[in-house]
């Protein structure tokens, strides 16, 4: 038996030494080519956009609210789209991070790992990640606008007048909640509903990233804290979460990247074809870079005239996404540095 094994080994060695290993060569070549191919595609897209878009970008372009024809390069601008996109992404982040982090904490720290409960939640999270974004848009319309928003309006018109009376009588505050009863305020597409729809869509990204970073924290640290007489909550808040912060922020960065370019979820929930002013309130509709790109590409009466604006708008969207990412990455780097230095 022993002799046989030794024999087999020497044979293998001979085989390797003498023959050219075709499959090794083939696979290293294949993986290298695939990588090059992807890099090539990425470079082509970026170069095409930068070369064609750069000349059309000017301070005027990024700082103007278009007043009439936004298909005309001389009068158009993308300020409301930049503001709208940034605004919706920031509001989304404010909602998605706490909900995602709390869910991840429940899944990793509290739920029994093998219980039916946990498995159902995990399956739900994974399925959420696989739902097409247009479906989220329809969900946002049906749930946030038609259900939540309409009921908010109804509540305000029912209780608003009496609430106004009470506030005026005792606190001397004039909110005029009742003024809205004729036209819907919340029961229509609005920035908050678009942001919430995006938050639901990016929830799995944040949950998974947070879970990974929580799992990476050594059990020894949790045990050390508990053995000192800390409660589970104290351990999570004071030991676990600070350590997980960079990972949570990675989740946030991924969510922002995903959401910034999405159009389908906001289509029915808040985006407008044209707005004469910047969005200033959560119940306002807004213009959006991604949607504006769609509009420029499909609705223009003069394609040749619109093309430079289209390129420029795409470039602005890319730069905005990069900018949001870079801000988040810089903050994360600071947090990491602080964590490493101390605590």
């Amino acid at each position: 038996m022993n002799a046989q094994t030794t024999n087999a080994r020497t044979e293998t060695r001979h085989f390797r030494a003498e023959k050219f290993d075709f499959w090794s060569f083939f696979f290293s070549g294949l993986t290298g080519m695939a990588t090059l191919f992807i890099l090539g595609i990425l470079a082509t897209i970026l170069l095409n956009i930068v070369i064609n878009g750069w000349s059309a970008i000017s301070w005027h372009f990024v700082s103007t609210i278009p007043k009439k024809d936004f298909f005309d390069a001389n009068t158009t601008g993308v300020l409301p789209m930049i503001v709208g996109t940034a605004f919706r992404v920031i509001v989304m982040t404010i909602f998605v991070i706490p909900v995602g982090v709390i869910t991840a904490i429940y899944l990793t720290e509290y739920a029994a790992n093998t219980s039916l409960n946990t498995r159902i939640i995990r399956a739900a999270v994974n399925n959420l990640a696989g739902v097409p974004s247009i479906v989220f848009g329809l969900f946002g319309l049906g749930f946030f606008i038609n259900f939540v928003g309409k009921n908010m309006d109804r509540g305000i018109s029912n209780f608003g007048p009496s609430l106004d009376n009470i506030l005026q009588k005792y606190l001397h505050i004039h909110l005029h909640l009742s003024a809205s009863d004729s036209s819907p305020v919340w029961g229509q597409p609005a920035l908050i509903w678009a942001s919430l729809t995006l938050a639901v869509m990016t929830l799995p990204v944040v949950i998974v990233a947070t879970e990974e970073s929580l799992k990476a924290i050594p059990t020894g640290l949790r045990e050390a804290s508990l053995a000192l007489g800390a409660t589970k909550l104290e351990t999570i808040l004071k030991i676990v979460l600070p350590q997980a912060l960079p990972g949570i922020m990675t989740g946030g960065i991924l969510a922002v990247s995903r959401a910034a370019g999405e159009v389908a979820p906001i289509l029915f929930t808040g985006v407008a074809y044209y707005m004469a002013s910047l969005p200033g309130h959560l119940s306002d509709q807004f213009m959006d870079l991604g949607y504006h790109i769609f509009v420029l590409a499909t609705q223009s009466p003069n394609i040749e005239q619109t093309r430079p604006i289209l390129y420029a708008t795409v470039l602005v969207l890319l730069m905005l996404t990069f900018a949001l990412n870079i801000v988040a990455i810089l903050i994360r780097a600071r947090v990491r540095k602080k964590l490493r230095a101390m605590g």
């Binding site: 053995a227 000192l228 964590l339 101390m342």
Partner: peptide, 19 residues
Amino acid sequence: IELRKRVGMVFQKSNPFPK
């Protein structure tokens, strides 16, 4: 909590907090 305050523990792998 009170029990663990009165019965402390030192672990096999030193586990200082990253503080």
